[in-house]
Design a protein around this nucleic acid. Structure first.
Lengths: 153, 153
DNA sequence: ATGAGTGCAAAGTATTTGCACGTAC
DNA sequence: GTACGTGCAAATACTTTGCACTCAT
């Protein structure tokens, strides 16, 4: 899903980002990046914590994960992509371009899509309002193909 | 912002909705609708509760407000429109058609917009994935015109 | 009369924070 | 050596729930 080079590159840029903020590139912070990267592209913090705690060769505390995820959001490598019922699903963006999500309310599957036209129209809307966009989130909730078929049988 | 007739109409449909679910159109539930309607189009529950408690002629408990807002979401008169930093901003949709939001991260202003083309493109995306959309949320975070000018002075 | 609704206080979640100890430069 | 980082447990913030009492039909 991501080459070692990409990951290394991300970590190096993150180190620079930290240095600029007078923060330190500690072993723990870099380890959190590795853990997130190997966990998969979407995660909730609680799941991630449990997964980390279940590994016997690592241990990073819940608070440090929260703190590091926050830093990674500022840095831009992590985004909150879905907010549903007080749960937050994060995504590791490393080396990936922007995209949006379809969320199946039945099976919770997350489907990613990109639509350049939608992006352009959004920029157009922003221009109309003299609004400078920083980021956006488009969540489409509905029922996926498989779940519809299951429902029909 | 909303005519008395519209409000009355909403309340009547809500009564039907409740009846269909074997729930009761209590004074308290209908009062919550009035309160939300007169509070304004956007609200957070905590704000709403404080506002209601500060009025000396009404009192509906925090739990009932949470419970009623949930029902109104199912009914479709209330939507969660913005999720930011674990806060949820709701919108009273009554009699209004769908629209999306620009959120200024400086002054927290919320600007509503409609873009039919974006809506159509979303439907197109859903079709491609054989995904049946139920609802969606598009939040564009950025800096509004006024805040940019303030920043430049 | 009966099942549903309400307020209250207590219990849950998710997230943040204070503090004592540890680590990077 | 100093300032920042970390883990832990406690605190906070938001939301839900159990229960005794009340209301709508």
């Amino acid at each position: 899903m991501m080459s070692k080079e990409e990951l290394k590159h991300i970590k190096n840029s993150f180190k620079k980002f930290l240095k600029d903020k007078n923060l330190k590139p500690t072993k723990t912070r870099l380890e959190v990046i590795d853990l997130i990267a190997s966990y998969g592209s979407h995660f909730e913090i609680e799941e991630l914590v449990n997964w980390i705690l279940s590994k016997n060769n690592t241990s990073v505390s819940r608070s440090t994960i929260y703190r590091t995820v926050k830093l990674l959001q500022e840095f831009g490598a992590v985004r909150e992509i879905i907010k549903i019922n007080n749960r937050t699903i994060y995504e590791f963006m490393a080396g990936r371009s922007h995209h949006d999500h379809l969320i199946c309310v039945e099976c919770k599957k997350i489907i990613e899509f990109v639509d350049q036209e939608i992006e352009e129209l959004q920029d157009q809307v922003c221009e109309e309002y003299d609004f400078t966009p920083i980021n956006h989130r488009l969540e489409i909730f509905g029922v996926c193909s498989e779940c519809k078929n299951k429902g029909n049988k």
